[in-house]
Write a protein that binds this DNA or RNA. Structure first.
Lengths: 253, 253
DNA sequence: TAGTGGTCTAGACCACACA
DNA sequence: GTGTGGTCTAGACCACTAT
């Protein structure tokens, strides 16, 4: 019964750690998410109401509410006033997150490889000034890389970084993802603004990606900001569309 | 000074409506957002701390916190524990939201037009069963439309809807956006899961979109769910990439 | 040490949906 | 009416950052 009341076994929430560093709402949300993923909570199932759930778990209502809201934002649950909370139908899809292509590939079990096409320190051009908010003519690092997975070329990555990163060298860029290198320097990515489009591959792009000339490529331009709100990376990427696409979940708030 | 403490004029928050239906946190968030957009709060500006702000406005801290969090989720603000809250550098970009192409075009001042290529009731095929979760062989509505803006063809929209919408007719689909029609029937879209990619246009697509054969098209396949978590629409769209692209803001939570 | 955001509590009242 | 989620209050303690 899709509409039936659903009473979660208390066992799911028994071993909550109230002293550790992991927030209670996060522990709750994780257990709920797992229950949805493994169909313990099937599609359409109705959750126990917030007040009762809070009481049963010995938590305050705002805490259980925060946990539920996180799953609503992920597109796993829907709420209706006067009705209740239900599990969304439809398969769960892993989402585009604030990670690099390198990490995406690693997580999905593929082996990412990077060939550095060029790396040089240049004066910021107009586009870099606009995107990064650096001073005109200041020195920036310009990197071009070819990313492959399991030996197949996947994407051409063109990135510009502000002056503080001009000492990144070819060897480091061959061995690690760009975001890994930034994190190792204490930079935390917080916000990224992306535009996704398509166009025909140039002769050089087609050559690098092993495509025929004029073949379609998927494009993404992105500016990423760290936790102080300052731009730390501007990227113009193009992907082989038969090997890569973007997944996005939208939630009305 | 980008890092300077910023004390918002009290006037910005004077006319809060405590009796109307608009939530206080929403009123606060809107005023803050406007102040960021018109540079009253310039990039890098530091907000007054939450406790003081709440006291000054005569609100509780959770309320002001909710307002700030909404803007963090929109990518306008960044928070750091022990430091404070700052305005993100970089221009604000309007985001992909849970709206239809029709409404996107209207909002940006263009005049959307729709040509219905075909509309028919058919038994659900495998893809429809998979995407919508309907019973195999049940009747679904299959619609193909060509969407233009200011007289230029922009996208081919292929949609499948479950049985309850099989009475939608050609005339209504010519005059209104699909989401408008659904809303008029009391359907509220809550969640959409999309995949964005690229490929070469087929001969028919190239013809309809006024492109040369094999030209790149931007593609999006989407399943949308209503507020009860049930799938109400499955769409496979392709766009002229020189006229359309997707904007996405990612925020680390 | 002082100041910041992050988490959590224990209530309250309201708006909306359904029988 | 009864039950649900939506909003709001007035505190508390903690973890982290900078000086």
């Amino acid at each position: 019964m899709a509409q039936s009341e659903h009473r979660l076994p208390v066992e799911l929430f028994l071993d909550l750690d109230r002293s550790g560093p992991v927030p209670l709402y996060y522990q709750i949300a994780s257990r709920l998410e797992q229950a949805i993923l493994d169909q313990t909570l099937p599609a359409g199932a109705r959750l126990e109401n917030e007040v009762a759930l809070a009481a049963r778990l010995g938590l305050s209502r705002p805490t259980i509410r925060r946990a539920i809201q996180d799953l609503v934002d992920k597109g796993l649950l829907v709420r209706r006033r006067g009705i209740g909370t239900q599990v969304v139908h439809g398969k769960v899809t892993r989402n585009v997150e604030l990670t690099s292509l390198y990490e995406d590939l690693e997580r999905s079990g593929q082996k990412p490889e990077t060939q550095v096409l060029s790396v040089e320190v240049v004066p910021a051009d107009e586009a870099a000034v606009e995107a990064l908010g650096v001073d005109p003519g200041s020195r920036v690092l310009h990197v071009q890389r070819l990313r492959s997975a399991d030996g197949v070329p996947l994407a051409i990555l063109d990135n510009v970084l502000p002056e503080q990163f001009t000492d990144l060298d070819r060897e480091a860029l061959e061995k690690h993802g760009l975001y890994q290198l930034l994190r190792a320097r204490g930079v935390t990515m917080r916000v990224a603004k992306q535009r996704i489009g398509a166009r025909a591959a140039s002769a050089r792009e087609a050559d690098l990606l092993d495509l025929s000339r004029g073949a379609p490529v998927l494009t993404m331009v992105r500016t990423a900001f760290d936790n102080s709100g300052v731009a730390v990376e501007f990227g113009q990427h193009c992907y082989r569309p038969d090997r890569y696409s973007f997944e996005v979940t939208l939630v009305d708030r």
